[in-house]
Structures are given as structure tokens and as C-alpha cells.
């Protein structure tokens, strides 16, 4: 198996705005969201970034997706470096997070075509892909309904379909089941497994143990911006439940017994 994602020594800090300082009841201006984070993923596996809220998962994924730049460190995705070839990285990945919204005014059908053209997908190929994925997710029923009038689950399905218009090798998915009803959540996780079967590499972030246990091949546990443990799911579990192991690792990392 080939290594397709290589992340080395990523650092990212944010300046808190005055409003954020008040909100988080802190006088500190800088937040070290991600510190010296390294990991790698093999082609064709599902890699899970597991960590509590505020651990730095989303920040890490946003750096890999070239939405924000790291203070230092590098990541190479399918041969493209985020620091020097951000545009190339964007052609290789499909990125999905709740931060990315679809314009409410348009329909899933229109937006699918729009993003396909931005990715330079040939119209005939686009139509084949579209009819496959719209069928698969049941988007066909609401393909001509404006995003504004769709439910959260429908929007999520449309977003997922659109993030894959260019059939990327690497799919990066932030909290894939957050806010979804159980049925939509199952459709989405099943599809991720399906994508792995096609040889795609998938990087998901989550704070849900069961999701990791169900679909991930490899896990990175991220706490306070640091990679605290990173191994195959079986090695991390070491015969216990993931939840128990997580809390062991967590107390060791923050030096407190829960």
C-alpha cells in the first residue's frame, strides 16, 4: 500500500478577536489550535481523526484543504504539497465540512453542474456521474428544489454529491454524521465504505467512537492540538473498547484522572 497523505509537523495558531476572548473567558490572545501534528494515511483506507471538541480537528482538515495556511509544517496529498501547490491539492481532494454552505438560491442540479465546470469536468462525464450519485442518494426527488427549501439531511446529501463532482482520490470529511438523522447518517457512512471499496482514501474527523469503530482502518487521537496516539484501529484498541482506550490516553495526555 502506498502512502497518499503525509502530514509533517503542522502548526497553526489563531488570534482571538476581542469578542472571542470575552466569549471564552480568557485574556490570552493566541490559541495554539494545532501543534506539531504529524500523521500519514495509506491509499484506500479510512483514516479517523478522533478528538473532543476544540481539539483542532477542523483546523487540521482546513489546512489540508488549503482553506487556511499552516504557520509551519507541510502536508503532501497525492504528491501535491499544500504550501507550494495549493491549486493542485484542490484538484485532488473532495472536502466537506459544515462550514461549506451551498448557495440557497440554487438547486442541487444547478450547483452540481456549476462546480463540475469549475473542476473542468467534461459535460458527458458529469451527466453520467450526476445521474449515478443523484440516484444513489435519492437526490433526484429534490434535484430541482432550491437549497433554501431542503432539510438538513437533503442539504448534506447534496453537499456530499457536489464535493465529489471531480471524482477525487482523497475525500476529507469533517464530522460526517453531525446533525444528521440516523437514516441519512447511515446512507453517508455506507457511502464512505463504498468509496473505500473503489480505492479512494478517506480522512474523517469525529468525536463519535462508534463511527470510528465501524468504518476506520487507522485512527489518530488528537487532544489539545497534538497527535497523542496514531495507529491502526486494532492496535489502538488493544483488545479494549475504543472509548475506554480513549479515556486512558486522554487522562495520560492531560495529566488528570477522569
Amino acid at each position: 500500500m502506498a502512502e497518499i497523505i503525509t502530514v509533517t509537523g503542522l502548526n497553526k495558531s489563531f488570534k482571538r478577536s476581542a469578542k472571542q476572548q470575552k466569549l471564552e473567558k480568557t485574556k490570552q490572545r493566541l490559541v495554539q489550535a494545532v501543534s506539531d501534528l504529524s500523521f500519514s494515511a495509506q491509499q484506500g483506507e479510512i483514516f479517523g481523526l478522533l478528538g473532543p471538541n476544540g481539539a483542532g480537528k477542523t483546523t487540521t482538515l482546513r489546512m489540508l484543504a488549503t482553506l487556511i495556511k499552516p504557520d509551519s509544517g507541510e502536508a503532501v496529498l497525492d504528491g501535491a504539497a499544500i504550501s507550494s501547490q495549493p491549486a493542485l491539492v484542490r484538484t485532488k481532494i473532495g472536502f466537506l465540512t459544515s462550514e461549506l454552505k451551498l448557495e440557497e438560491f440554487f438547486t442541487p442540479n444547478y450547483l452540481y453542474d456549476f462546480f463540475a465546470s469549475l473542476h473542468g469536468v467534461d459535460p458527458a462525464l458529469r451527466d453520467r456521474r450526476k445521474s449515478y450519485i443523484f440516484e444513489k442518494f435519492g437526490i433526484r426527488d429534490f434535484a430541482e428544489v432550491k437549497i433554501a427549501n431542503l432539510s438538513t439531511g437533503m442539504k448534506q446529501k447534496a453537499s456530499l454529491a457536489i464535493s465529489l463532482v471531480h471524482d477525487p482520490e482523497i475525500i476529507i470529511f469533517d464530522e460526517p454524521t453531525n446533525g444528521l438523522d440516523v437514516i441519512t447518517a447511515k446512507v453517508v457512512t455506507d457511502y464512505l465504505v463504498d468509496l473505500r471499496r473503489q480505492g479512494k482514501t478517506i480522512l474523517v474527523s469525529t468525536h463519535i467512537f462508534s463511527l470510528v469503530e465501524k468504518i476506520c482502518d487507522r485512527v489518530g487521537i488528537i487532544i489539545n492540538g497534538k497527535m497523542t496516539a496514531c495507529d491502526t484501529l486494532d492496535n489502538i484498541r488493544a483488545g479494549q473498547s475504543l472509548e475506554d482506550r480513549f479515556f486512558d490516553i486522554y487522562s495520560e495526555a492531560v495529566g488528570a484522572v477522569i
Binding site: 484538484t91 462550514e99 461549506l100 454552505k101 462546480f115 469549475l118
Partner: peptide
């Protein structure tokens, strides 16, 4: 408006210059 609604990021992750 696109910033406020978060739709600009969806375009920023495409290869568009």
C-alpha cells in the same frame, strides 16, 4: 453576503484561481 453565508469557502476549495 457570500462570506456571511459561508458559500464563498465552497468556491475557494475548488481549483478556480
Amino acid at each position: 453576503g457570500e462570506k456571511e453565508r459561508g458559500t464563498i469557502a465552497t468556491i475557494l476549495i475548488t481549483p478556480v484561481k
